[in-house]
Design a protein around this nucleic acid. Structure first.
Lengths: 201, 201
DNA sequence: TATAATATATAACGATCGACACATAATTTA
DNA sequence: TAAATTATGTGTCGATCGTTATATATTATA
Protein backbone atom coordinates (compact mmCIF):
# COMPACT_ATOMS: atom_id res chain seq x y z
CA UNK A 1 0.00 0.00 0.00
CA UNK A 2 1.75 3.13 -1.19
CA UNK A 3 1.16 6.65 0.01
CA UNK A 4 -1.71 8.46 -1.66
CA UNK A 5 -1.50 11.81 -3.35
CA UNK A 6 1.09 13.43 -5.55
CA UNK A 7 4.57 12.35 -4.55
CA UNK A 8 7.18 14.90 -3.62
CA UNK A 9 9.70 15.45 -6.34
CA UNK A 10 12.64 16.14 -4.05
CA UNK A 11 14.52 14.02 -1.56
CA UNK A 12 13.69 15.30 1.92
CA UNK A 13 17.06 14.35 3.36
CA UNK A 14 18.96 15.88 0.46
CA UNK A 15 16.97 19.07 0.83
CA UNK A 16 17.63 19.12 4.57
CA UNK A 17 21.32 18.75 3.93
CA UNK A 18 21.28 21.75 1.62
CA UNK A 19 19.43 23.75 4.26
CA UNK A 20 22.04 22.69 6.80
CA UNK A 21 24.81 23.99 4.57
CA UNK A 22 23.04 27.33 4.17
CA UNK A 23 22.41 27.74 7.91
CA UNK A 24 25.96 26.65 8.63
CA UNK A 25 27.34 29.33 6.32
CA UNK A 26 25.11 32.24 7.34
CA UNK A 27 23.51 31.40 10.68
CA UNK A 28 19.83 31.20 11.54
CA UNK A 29 18.86 34.84 11.17
CA UNK A 30 21.30 35.39 8.33
CA UNK A 31 19.63 32.75 6.19
CA UNK A 32 16.39 34.04 4.68
CA UNK A 33 13.60 31.90 3.27
CA UNK A 34 14.50 33.29 -0.14
CA UNK A 35 18.04 32.01 0.36
CA UNK A 36 16.72 28.62 1.43
CA UNK A 37 14.48 28.45 -1.64
CA UNK A 38 17.56 28.99 -3.77
CA UNK A 39 19.84 26.66 -1.83
CA UNK A 40 17.32 23.83 -1.61
CA UNK A 41 15.89 24.51 -5.08
CA UNK A 42 12.37 24.11 -3.68
CA UNK A 43 9.61 26.69 -3.54
CA UNK A 44 8.66 27.93 -0.12
CA UNK A 45 5.21 26.26 0.12
CA UNK A 46 6.88 22.90 -0.40
CA UNK A 47 9.48 23.73 2.23
CA UNK A 48 6.73 24.61 4.66
CA UNK A 49 4.78 21.46 3.80
CA UNK A 50 7.83 19.31 4.45
CA UNK A 51 9.41 21.09 7.41
CA UNK A 52 6.70 23.21 9.03
CA UNK A 53 8.57 26.45 9.55
CA UNK A 54 11.95 28.06 9.15
CA UNK A 55 12.65 27.50 12.82
CA UNK A 56 11.77 23.81 12.64
CA UNK A 57 13.85 23.43 9.51
CA UNK A 58 16.78 24.92 11.38
CA UNK A 59 16.29 22.59 14.33
CA UNK A 60 16.23 19.60 12.00
CA UNK A 61 19.32 20.93 10.23
CA UNK A 62 21.14 21.21 13.55
CA UNK A 63 20.11 17.68 14.47
CA UNK A 64 21.47 16.47 11.15
CA UNK A 65 24.67 18.41 11.77
CA UNK A 66 25.05 16.87 15.20
CA UNK A 67 24.61 13.36 13.86
CA UNK A 68 27.01 13.83 10.96
CA UNK A 69 29.53 16.67 10.90
CA UNK A 70 29.67 17.55 14.57
CA UNK A 71 28.89 14.03 15.65
CA UNK A 72 32.16 12.75 14.26
CA UNK A 73 34.00 14.85 16.80
CA UNK A 74 32.35 13.26 19.80
CA UNK A 75 32.13 9.70 18.56
CA UNK A 76 35.86 9.87 17.92
CA UNK A 77 36.50 11.29 21.37
CA UNK A 78 34.28 8.75 23.11
CA UNK A 79 36.05 5.91 21.34
CA UNK A 80 39.41 6.83 22.87
CA UNK A 81 40.74 4.71 25.74
CA UNK A 82 41.99 7.54 27.95
CA UNK A 83 40.74 10.98 28.94
CA UNK A 84 43.88 12.56 27.58
CA UNK A 85 43.60 10.96 24.18
CA UNK A 86 39.87 11.69 24.15
CA UNK A 87 40.50 15.41 24.58
CA UNK A 88 43.38 15.39 22.11
CA UNK A 89 41.19 13.59 19.60
CA UNK A 90 38.23 15.90 20.23
CA UNK A 91 40.41 18.90 19.43
CA UNK A 92 42.20 17.31 16.50
CA UNK A 93 39.02 16.09 14.84
CA UNK A 94 37.43 19.49 15.52
CA UNK A 95 40.31 21.16 13.70
CA UNK A 96 39.70 18.92 10.72
CA UNK A 97 35.92 19.22 10.77
CA UNK A 98 36.11 23.00 11.08
CA UNK A 99 38.34 23.30 8.01
CA UNK A 100 36.76 21.02 5.44
CA UNK A 101 37.14 22.17 1.85
CA UNK A 102 33.90 23.35 0.25
CA UNK A 103 32.18 23.52 3.61
CA UNK A 104 31.71 26.50 5.93
CA UNK A 105 34.45 26.99 8.49
CA UNK A 106 33.70 26.33 12.16
CA UNK A 107 30.79 24.67 13.90
CA UNK A 108 27.09 25.22 13.23
CA UNK A 109 26.25 24.78 16.90
CA UNK A 110 28.66 27.53 17.90
CA UNK A 111 28.09 29.91 15.00
CA UNK A 112 24.41 29.33 14.19
CA UNK A 113 22.96 31.65 16.83
CA UNK A 114 24.76 33.49 19.61
CA UNK A 115 22.27 36.25 20.41
CA UNK A 116 19.13 35.87 22.51
CA UNK A 117 17.10 38.02 20.15
CA UNK A 118 13.34 38.22 19.99
CA UNK A 119 12.73 36.07 16.94
CA UNK A 120 15.53 33.56 17.31
CA UNK A 121 15.33 33.22 21.07
CA UNK A 122 14.19 29.60 21.04
CA UNK A 123 16.85 28.80 18.49
CA UNK A 124 19.51 30.44 20.63
CA UNK A 125 18.39 28.59 23.74
CA UNK A 126 18.60 25.25 21.97
CA UNK A 127 22.11 25.88 20.64
CA UNK A 128 23.13 27.10 24.07
CA UNK A 129 21.97 23.76 25.48
CA UNK A 130 23.96 21.88 22.87
CA UNK A 131 27.05 23.93 23.67
CA UNK A 132 26.60 23.06 27.33
CA UNK A 133 26.31 19.41 26.32
CA UNK A 134 29.86 19.51 24.99
CA UNK A 135 31.09 20.36 28.46
CA UNK A 136 28.89 17.66 29.95
CA UNK A 137 30.22 15.06 27.54
CA UNK A 138 33.81 15.86 28.41
CA UNK A 139 32.93 15.60 32.10
CA UNK A 140 31.44 12.16 31.49
CA UNK A 141 34.70 11.08 29.94
CA UNK A 142 36.64 12.56 32.83
CA UNK A 143 34.49 10.84 35.44
CA UNK A 144 35.16 7.51 33.86
CA UNK A 145 38.85 8.35 33.86
CA UNK A 146 38.67 9.09 37.57
CA UNK A 147 37.00 5.76 38.27
CA UNK A 148 39.66 4.05 36.21
CA UNK A 149 42.46 5.80 38.02
CA UNK A 150 43.73 7.89 35.13
CA UNK A 151 42.68 11.12 36.77
CA UNK A 152 42.83 12.07 40.43
CA UNK A 153 39.52 12.67 42.16
CA UNK A 154 41.02 15.98 43.23
CA UNK A 155 40.91 17.24 39.66
CA UNK A 156 38.41 20.01 38.93
CA UNK A 157 36.75 18.11 36.10
CA UNK A 158 34.27 20.83 35.24
CA UNK A 159 37.03 23.44 35.01
CA UNK A 160 39.12 21.28 32.70
CA UNK A 161 36.11 20.50 30.55
CA UNK A 162 35.16 24.16 30.27
CA UNK A 163 38.69 25.05 29.30
CA UNK A 164 38.97 22.55 26.47
CA UNK A 165 35.53 23.39 25.14
CA UNK A 166 36.51 27.05 25.21
CA UNK A 167 39.50 26.19 23.03
CA UNK A 168 37.25 24.29 20.68
CA UNK A 169 34.80 27.19 20.49
CA UNK A 170 37.60 29.63 19.82
CA UNK A 171 38.71 27.38 16.99
CA UNK A 172 35.25 27.83 15.47
CA UNK A 173 35.72 31.58 15.40
CA UNK A 174 39.15 31.34 13.84
CA UNK A 175 37.95 28.76 11.33
CA UNK A 176 35.12 31.05 10.35
CA UNK A 177 37.68 33.81 9.87
CA UNK A 178 39.59 31.62 7.44
CA UNK A 179 42.19 29.90 9.60
CA UNK A 180 43.93 27.02 7.81
CA UNK A 181 43.64 23.41 8.92
CA UNK A 182 47.27 23.40 10.00
CA UNK A 183 46.75 26.54 12.03
CA UNK A 184 43.78 24.95 13.82
CA UNK A 185 45.66 21.73 14.44
CA UNK A 186 48.43 23.73 16.05
CA UNK A 187 45.92 25.42 18.34
CA UNK A 188 44.65 21.98 19.30
CA UNK A 189 48.15 20.73 20.08
CA UNK A 190 48.96 23.88 22.03
CA UNK A 191 45.94 23.38 24.24
CA UNK A 192 47.11 19.86 25.09
CA UNK A 193 50.33 21.32 26.45
CA UNK A 194 48.34 22.23 29.55
CA UNK A 195 47.06 18.72 30.22
CA UNK A 196 49.66 17.44 32.66
CA UNK A 197 49.63 20.63 34.71
CA UNK A 198 45.84 20.59 34.85
CA UNK A 199 45.52 16.96 35.85
CA UNK A 200 48.47 16.59 38.25
CA UNK A 201 46.89 17.14 41.63
CA UNK B 1 30.65 82.24 17.55
CA UNK B 2 28.31 79.37 18.28
CA UNK B 3 26.93 76.88 15.78
CA UNK B 4 23.88 78.02 13.83
CA UNK B 5 20.61 76.16 13.67
CA UNK B 6 18.61 74.27 16.22
CA UNK B 7 20.91 72.43 18.63
CA UNK B 8 20.52 68.70 19.08
CA UNK B 9 18.86 67.77 22.29
CA UNK B 10 20.85 64.60 22.94
CA UNK B 11 24.47 63.92 23.78
CA UNK B 12 26.07 62.27 20.77
CA UNK B 13 28.53 60.27 22.86
CA UNK B 14 25.85 59.13 25.27
CA UNK B 15 23.68 58.05 22.37
CA UNK B 16 26.59 56.20 20.80
CA UNK B 17 27.19 54.38 24.04
CA UNK B 18 23.59 53.23 24.15
CA UNK B 19 23.88 52.02 20.56
CA UNK B 20 27.06 50.15 21.50
CA UNK B 21 25.22 48.38 24.30
CA UNK B 22 22.43 47.35 21.93
CA UNK B 23 24.82 46.05 19.26
CA UNK B 24 26.86 44.31 21.93
CA UNK B 25 23.79 42.49 23.20
CA UNK B 26 22.21 41.51 19.89
CA UNK B 27 24.84 41.83 17.16
CA UNK B 28 24.76 43.94 14.03
CA UNK B 29 21.99 42.17 12.14
CA UNK B 30 20.10 41.36 15.32
CA UNK B 31 19.77 45.02 16.25
CA UNK B 32 17.07 46.73 14.17
CA UNK B 33 16.72 50.47 13.68
CA UNK B 34 13.51 50.24 15.70
CA UNK B 35 15.51 48.71 18.53
CA UNK B 36 18.12 51.46 18.24
CA UNK B 37 15.40 54.13 18.32
CA UNK B 38 14.19 52.62 21.58
CA UNK B 39 17.62 52.07 23.11
CA UNK B 40 18.96 55.51 22.17
CA UNK B 41 15.62 57.23 22.76
CA UNK B 42 16.11 59.19 19.54
CA UNK B 43 13.94 59.11 16.43
CA UNK B 44 15.50 57.57 13.38
CA UNK B 45 15.92 60.78 11.31
CA UNK B 46 18.03 62.23 14.09
CA UNK B 47 20.07 59.05 14.29
CA UNK B 48 20.70 59.26 10.55
CA UNK B 49 21.57 62.95 10.76
CA UNK B 50 24.10 62.28 13.49
CA UNK B 51 25.56 58.94 12.37
CA UNK B 52 24.81 58.55 8.67
CA UNK B 53 23.61 54.97 8.55
CA UNK B 54 23.11 51.91 10.68
CA UNK B 55 26.37 50.48 9.40
CA UNK B 56 28.34 53.62 10.22
CA UNK B 57 26.70 53.75 13.64
CA UNK B 58 27.87 50.20 14.23
CA UNK B 59 31.40 50.99 13.13
CA UNK B 60 31.51 53.94 15.50
CA UNK B 61 30.08 51.76 18.26
CA UNK B 62 32.81 49.18 17.69
CA UNK B 63 35.45 51.90 17.77
CA UNK B 64 34.03 53.12 21.05
CA UNK B 65 34.04 49.56 22.37
CA UNK B 66 37.63 49.08 21.36
CA UNK B 67 38.74 52.27 23.10
CA UNK B 68 36.83 51.53 26.30
CA UNK B 69 35.61 48.03 27.12
CA UNK B 70 37.83 45.96 24.90
CA UNK B 71 40.67 48.45 25.05
CA UNK B 72 41.17 47.80 28.74
CA UNK B 73 42.18 44.25 27.93
CA UNK B 74 45.03 45.24 25.66
CA UNK B 75 46.28 48.28 27.52
CA UNK B 76 46.55 46.07 30.60
CA UNK B 77 48.39 43.38 28.63
CA UNK B 78 50.77 45.85 26.99
CA UNK B 79 51.63 47.35 30.36
CA UNK B 80 52.98 44.05 31.67
CA UNK B 81 56.75 43.57 31.87
CA UNK B 82 56.91 40.03 30.53
CA UNK B 83 55.20 38.09 27.76
CA UNK B 84 53.93 35.56 30.23
CA UNK B 85 52.34 38.12 32.50
CA UNK B 86 50.99 39.96 29.47
CA UNK B 87 49.13 36.86 28.29
CA UNK B 88 47.97 36.01 31.80
CA UNK B 89 46.71 39.57 32.21
CA UNK B 90 45.06 39.59 28.79
CA UNK B 91 43.10 36.48 29.72
CA UNK B 92 42.31 37.56 33.26
CA UNK B 93 41.09 41.01 32.25
CA UNK B 94 39.12 39.43 29.43
CA UNK B 95 37.38 37.18 31.93
CA UNK B 96 36.43 40.22 33.95
CA UNK B 97 35.40 42.36 30.99
CA UNK B 98 33.31 39.55 29.55
CA UNK B 99 31.34 39.10 32.77
CA UNK B 100 30.50 42.61 33.86
CA UNK B 101 27.19 42.96 35.68
CA UNK B 102 24.49 44.77 33.69
CA UNK B 103 26.51 44.45 30.50
CA UNK B 104 26.27 41.85 27.75
CA UNK B 105 28.52 38.82 28.22
CA UNK B 106 31.48 38.37 25.89
CA UNK B 107 33.15 40.67 23.40
CA UNK B 108 31.43 42.85 20.80
CA UNK B 109 34.27 42.29 18.33
CA UNK B 110 33.85 38.53 18.52
CA UNK B 111 30.06 38.35 18.79
CA UNK B 112 28.98 41.36 16.73
CA UNK B 113 29.16 39.69 13.30
CA UNK B 114 30.49 36.24 12.44
CA UNK B 115 28.81 35.61 9.10
CA UNK B 116 29.89 37.03 5.75
CA UNK B 117 26.31 37.72 4.69
CA UNK B 118 25.24 40.01 1.89
CA UNK B 119 24.15 43.01 3.92
CA UNK B 120 26.60 42.83 6.76
CA UNK B 121 29.58 41.76 4.72
CA UNK B 122 31.55 44.96 5.23
CA UNK B 123 30.76 44.82 8.91
CA UNK B 124 31.95 41.22 9.12
CA UNK B 125 35.17 42.00 7.27
CA UNK B 126 35.98 44.83 9.66
CA UNK B 127 35.41 42.72 12.76
CA UNK B 128 37.45 39.94 11.20
CA UNK B 129 40.31 42.42 10.81
CA UNK B 130 40.00 43.45 14.43
CA UNK B 131 40.04 39.81 15.53
CA UNK B 132 43.21 39.29 13.54
CA UNK B 133 44.67 42.35 15.25
CA UNK B 134 44.43 40.57 18.58
CA UNK B 135 46.77 37.90 17.29
CA UNK B 136 49.07 40.56 15.84
CA UNK B 137 49.19 42.41 19.13
CA UNK B 138 50.17 39.29 21.03
CA UNK B 139 52.89 38.63 18.47
CA UNK B 140 54.23 42.14 18.99
CA UNK B 141 54.49 41.42 22.68
CA UNK B 142 56.19 38.10 21.98
CA UNK B 143 58.72 39.64 19.60
CA UNK B 144 59.76 42.09 22.23
CA UNK B 145 60.10 39.19 24.67
CA UNK B 146 62.37 37.41 22.21
CA UNK B 147 64.58 40.45 21.85
CA UNK B 148 64.73 40.76 25.62
CA UNK B 149 65.64 37.11 26.05
CA UNK B 150 62.47 35.98 27.79
CA UNK B 151 61.43 33.81 24.88
CA UNK B 152 63.58 31.67 22.63
CA UNK B 153 63.75 32.70 18.99
CA UNK B 154 62.82 29.08 18.27
CA UNK B 155 59.34 29.65 19.67
CA UNK B 156 56.49 29.60 17.16
CA UNK B 157 55.19 32.99 18.18
CA UNK B 158 52.27 33.01 15.78
CA UNK B 159 51.10 29.60 16.97
CA UNK B 160 51.22 30.64 20.61
CA UNK B 161 49.40 33.87 19.83
CA UNK B 162 46.68 32.07 17.90
CA UNK B 163 46.22 29.62 20.72
CA UNK B 164 45.75 32.23 23.41
CA UNK B 165 43.43 34.31 21.27
CA UNK B 166 41.41 31.17 20.58
CA UNK B 167 41.01 30.70 24.31
CA UNK B 168 39.94 34.32 24.64
CA UNK B 169 37.43 33.93 21.82
CA UNK B 170 36.05 30.77 23.36
CA UNK B 171 35.60 32.70 26.58
CA UNK B 172 33.38 35.11 24.66
CA UNK B 173 31.08 32.28 23.63
CA UNK B 174 30.86 30.91 27.14
CA UNK B 175 30.33 34.36 28.60
CA UNK B 176 27.50 34.94 26.14
CA UNK B 177 26.01 31.65 27.28
CA UNK B 178 26.02 32.86 30.86
CA UNK B 179 29.30 31.59 32.28
CA UNK B 180 30.17 33.16 35.63
CA UNK B 181 33.18 35.39 36.18
CA UNK B 182 34.81 32.70 38.31
CA UNK B 183 34.27 30.12 35.62
CA UNK B 184 35.90 32.38 33.03
CA UNK B 185 38.81 33.17 35.31
CA UNK B 186 39.40 29.46 35.73
CA UNK B 187 39.48 29.01 31.97
CA UNK B 188 42.06 31.80 31.80
CA UNK B 189 44.22 30.15 34.44
CA UNK B 190 43.91 26.76 32.80
CA UNK B 191 45.17 28.16 29.53
CA UNK B 192 48.26 29.50 31.27
CA UNK B 193 49.12 25.97 32.37
CA UNK B 194 50.39 25.43 28.84
CA UNK B 195 52.79 28.36 28.85
CA UNK B 196 56.00 26.69 29.93
CA UNK B 197 55.53 23.77 27.57
CA UNK B 198 54.79 26.11 24.68
CA UNK B 199 57.73 28.41 25.27
CA UNK B 200 60.42 25.92 26.30
CA UNK B 201 62.25 25.24 23.08
C1' DT C 1 12.82 91.28 12.85
C1' DA C 2 13.82 88.57 8.67
C1' DT C 3 16.76 84.94 6.89
C1' DA C 4 19.60 81.02 6.92
C1' DA C 5 20.73 76.88 9.11
C1' DT C 6 20.09 72.85 11.74
C1' DA C 7 17.25 69.46 14.52
C1' DT C 8 12.95 67.63 15.41
C1' DA C 9 8.58 64.55 15.02
C1' DT C 10 5.41 62.36 12.02
C1' DA C 11 4.75 59.57 8.51
C1' DA C 12 5.73 56.94 4.80
C1' DC C 13 8.82 54.92 1.20
C1' DG C 14 10.28 50.52 -1.50
C1' DA C 15 12.37 46.19 -0.26
C1' DT C 16 12.44 42.18 2.14
C1' DC C 17 10.94 39.25 5.96
C1' DG C 18 8.44 34.58 7.20
C1' DA C 19 4.34 32.42 5.93
C1' DC C 20 0.36 31.00 3.27
C1' DA C 21 -4.11 31.11 -0.13
C1' DC C 22 -5.19 29.40 -4.24
C1' DA C 23 -5.62 26.81 -8.33
C1' DT C 24 -3.46 23.08 -10.67
C1' DA C 25 -0.88 18.67 -11.26
C1' DA C 26 -0.03 13.97 -9.99
C1' DT C 27 -0.90 9.95 -7.54
C1' DT C 28 -3.78 6.10 -4.93
C1' DT C 29 -8.06 4.20 -3.73
C1' DA C 30 -12.89 3.07 -4.51
C1' DT D 1 -13.34 6.54 -14.36
C1' DA D 2 -14.54 9.30 -10.18
C1' DA D 3 -13.17 10.67 -5.70
C1' DA D 4 -9.81 11.52 -2.33
C1' DT D 5 -5.32 12.97 -1.21
C1' DT D 6 -1.01 15.23 -1.48
C1' DA D 7 2.55 18.27 -3.81
C1' DT D 8 3.55 22.02 -6.82
C1' DG D 9 4.04 26.87 -8.79
C1' DT D 10 2.33 31.46 -8.76
C1' DG D 11 1.33 35.09 -6.33
C1' DT D 12 0.62 37.69 -2.28
C1' DC D 13 -0.30 38.50 2.64
C1' DG D 14 0.73 41.68 6.83
C1' DA D 15 4.88 42.84 9.34
C1' DT D 16 9.18 44.62 9.60
C1' DC D 17 13.52 46.05 7.43
C1' DG D 18 16.70 50.38 6.67
C1' DT D 19 15.98 54.83 5.04
C1' DT D 20 14.10 59.35 3.91
C1' DA D 21 10.55 63.18 2.44
C1' DT D 22 8.09 66.65 4.62
C1' DA D 23 6.70 70.08 7.65
C1' DT D 24 7.68 72.26 11.94
C1' DA D 25 10.60 73.97 15.82
C1' DT D 26 14.68 76.26 17.46
C1' DT D 27 18.83 78.61 17.08
C1' DA D 28 22.56 82.21 15.16
C1' DT D 29 23.39 85.71 11.94
C1' DA D 30 22.35 89.69 9.03
Amino acid sequence: MKKRGRPRNFDRQEALKKAMMAFWAHGYEGTSMAALVKAMNINSPSIYAAFGSKENLFQEAVTLYRTTEGGRIWTAALAEPTARSAVATMLKVSAKEFSQPNKPGGCLVVLGAIHAAGDSDAVYQKLKEYRAESIATLMQIFKRAVSEGELSDQTDLRAVARYYVAVQQGMSIQARDGASRQSLLTVAESAMAAWENLTDC
